[in-house]
């Protein structure tokens, strides 16, 4: 851990001794800048009951540059794309060196509770979300998975039809 800034050490220490509710962040044994994160789906959100794995990496410039965060678990969310990349202002232009790993993870947790369909990475999901939000929240994760199933089936069905049309 040579050359690791005091700030990273302090942050890591606090994450371990005083963890945020519903968030578990542990540094990698080999690389102190790499964190394995598990976020619990927030209460009253369609993700309640689910657990989501993320990876968090602190680049060399940290804290002048934001940490790099990505969902490892597949998730159906308008601001998270298929590769798990997150559309969140504080991870981009609104980053401030006064923010911390803790605040970043809290913001991601909040994003799960309140998706922002107007700033989407995954446009198809955002549209589905806009029309079905109340339904999704009412019925919890099962219906969410069900919706996901319906949605993808529909997608594949349309593709199949298109393909079929080309041959006829």
């Amino acid at each position: 851990m040579a050359g690791l800034p005091k700030r990273i050490l302090k942050e890591t220490q606090r994450l371990l001794t005083d963890p945020v509710q519903g968030i578990n962040a542990t540094p990698d044994e080999q690389n102190a800048r790499y964190f394995h994160v598990v976020v619990a789906g927030p209460k009253d959100s369609p993700f309640e009951g689910g657990t989501f794995k993320l990876e968090l990496f602190l680049p060399e410039e940290y804290p002048m540059a934001p940490p790099k965060v990505r969902f490892m678990t597949k998730i159906y969310h308008p601001n998270i794309d298929k590769l798990g990349r997150i559309c969140l202002d504080i991870l981009k232009d609104k980053w401030s060196p006064a923010l911390q790993i803790r605040t970043v993870l809290l913001s991601i947790q909040a994003l799960l509770s309140a998706p922002n369909p107007d700033d989407p990475l995954a446009n198809d999901v955002a549209d589905a979300w806009k029309t079905n939000e109340h339904l999704a929240i009412q019925t919890g994760e099962e219906s969410f998975l069900y919706m996901y199933f319906i949605f993808t089936s529909l997608l594949y069905f349309t593709r199949f039809c298109l393909l079929f049309n080309n041959f006829s």
Binding site: P5, R7, K10, P63, P97
Partner: peptide
Amino acid sequence: KQEYICDICMM
């Protein structure tokens, strides 16, 4: 009273 913690370096 005279000591502050800097939010960037946490010192």
